[in-house]
Computed example of a mutant assay.
Amino acid sequence: MQNSTEQSGLPLDWDDVRYFLALARQRSLSGAARVLHVEHSTVARRVQGLETRLGVRLFDRLPRSWPLTAEGEALLAHAGRMEEEALAFGRAALGASTLEGTVRLSVPPVFGSHFLVPRLAALRPHWQGIVLDLTGEARAAELHRGEADLAVRLSRPQQPGLAARKLGEMGYGLYGGHGWVGLPQDAWVFLGYGESLREVPQQRWLERLAGERPFVMHANDLATLHQGCRGGLGLAVLPHFLARDDPALFGMMPPDAAPRRDIWLAVHPDVRRSPRVRAVAEALAKAVQEASGSLI
């Protein structure tokens, strides 16, 4: 691709730079398309348009990947700084916004669906005019990149620059279907988290408790463990808010035997100034505080 003074003088479209960054980070059209929530053909078209506008070939087209060319590598840091400025602009705009609008909330999936959502109706008067965009996800949303405005997490956020507030605690217990009641403990078998979640406190506690006794299923999804436990497949460590009032389950040990986990609310300091973000944050804190009995 030949350099063109006329082309390179055209103003850049930030969206094209955003596509460039996604493809540079993912190194494939399909990966960038997943991150951007578009078709892979859209990624290719936008990147091709950027290359034409700049008069520079940014990527090598290989069968399985699109690595950056030397010219693309040279522009990557500049594009990253553009992204940071664009994100900062967006956060500042949100901080200056009104009480009406959308607030994006990232929460652990089952905590969102089984604890938080059933309590939203009672909290609605605290955030009239606000639309809550709730995403259930096990990973930690990147608040610096604007993936969410608020994030509920089960450990204190470690990313620098985030503001964090402890909302309360979540207790866990060892639960099983009624068919396990009365069986000797050496007959117990267990359901646990998969490899990606093996280091969470409740899984470490369960592995110590199990000792040499077998695990018959691992899953990376709390809802799957819950259903396996309800079906009698084995014993699982489950949060009390999910299992304590479930008629299909029975607490197999004292309710305070398993560990507790802290519930944290994280927000970027720029976004925290937004009236609607503050309103939702206060409503979440109220929900956790008022339901602390069901959590622990």
Rank of each mutant, 00 (worst) to 15 (best):
H40N: 14
G161A: 03
T135A: 03
A243W: 00
H37T: 08
R244H: 06
A122W: 12
L68F: 06
R53Q: 13
R208F: 01
R139K: 09
R278V: 06
M253S: 07
L105A: 08
Y172D: 04
R57L: 10
P118Q: 09
V181N: 10
W127Q: 11
M252D: 02
R34N: 05
E282T: 01
E207C: 04
G251T: 08
A281N: 04
A24T: 11
H226P: 00
R46W: 02
D15P: 00
D270H: 05
Q185Y: 02
G72P: 10
G72R: 11
P184T: 11
Q48G: 12
L249K: 05
H78T: 14
A141P: 10
L54P: 03
F111M: 13
T69M: 04
Q202F: 00
S97E: 13
L249V: 08
V117A: 11
Y175A: 06
M82E: 06
T135R: 09
L295Y: 12
V47D: 07
V43Q: 05
P108Q: 12
S274I: 07
D133V: 01
E84N: 01
S97G: 14
R273D: 09
G31Y: 08
G55S: 07
A258D: 09
P255D: 14
E195P: 02
A164P: 08
R119A: 06
P184V: 11
L62F: 02
G49C: 05
R208D: 12
E83W: 12
E212Y: 01
E71M: 08
